[in-house]
Design a protein around this nucleic acid. Sequence first.
DNA 1: CGAATCTATCTGCTTAAACGGATATAAGAA
DNA 2: TTCTTATATCCGTTTAAGCAGATAGATTCG
Lengths: 144, 144
Amino acid sequence: MEDIAQIYKALSEQMRLRILMLLTHGELCVCDLMAVLEEPQSKVSRHVAYLKNSGLIKGRRVGTWMHYFLKEPLEGLVAAHVEFLKRELSGLDWARDDVEKMKEVQAKKLCEAPPSVTRKRASGTTGTAAAGMAGNKGKRKANS
Amino acid sequence: MEDIAQIYKALSEQMRLRILMLLTHGELCVCDLMAVLEEPQSKVSRHVAYLKNSGLIKGRRVGTWMHYFLKEPLEGLVAAHVEFLKRELSGLDWARDDVEKMKEVQAKKLCEAPPSVTRKRASGTTGTAAAGMAGNKGKRKANS
DNA sequence: CGAATCTATCTGCTTAAACGGATATAAGAA
DNA sequence: TTCTTATATCCGTTTAAGCAGATAGATTCG
């Protein structure tokens, strides 16, 4: 799996770079990624799968959710590249924007909390939801 | 042109990595690259063109030949990546092998010398050619 | 000029992988 | 079990780019 070209293939899509940079800040579930990236689920899942198959990230199931995170420890050259990315890309505009949005998304805690709590918050109290509704592009029907 | 994903696309083929690593040792013409890589001319040219269009290398004409070399100075992120490649890949088996073969190829000086000299050497004295014929896969008809 | 050589590009074909939408699967809640 | 949610995967389509072989352009030599 020391195929360097394969590492670069994995890094050669902006979407995957964005996902990787987000994961350098901690693990995230697919729905959080969808919310941050504002991309359809199949697209996010596809790219996450690619990164997983390339040996860059791993996933673990947490209830209904899959949480993805950087594989640690990474093998030699892959590790060097990820360090490189952290160092060189974290200052770029798009990376900063994504991290900022990630914090907003996580503040809403739609995914991280136990399912029961989440479910009730989302449908029951519209107050907290309204406060953080900015950027929600109809991903979740308000009340139905 | 600070599209990071595009940099990684350029690096995501083994053939292009090999070319780049060779060029870290100095400029080379296409026919030398063909000899080292043992690949057809259209393939070498195609990958060289890709690297050129991605802003990693440049070419200059020297008589009949095109010599390619790493673009200097490279822009920020590209430069960092090339430095990274030099540091991390130069010890790999395939990279060492290619450099070694490059030195053999250049020792024959089929390309670097002025065309007239080259032409006469190649067709006139078969002695020098025979000494370095190893690895020549019918690329050049011996006498026709 | 014509011949030879080096390189770039075109041709037709093939493959990898992108995409969005639909569907299947897995797990918790009711 | 049935419903809902989260995620993975399948579908048909599209695009980028791989390939080898053929051809065209550039340059130098005679």
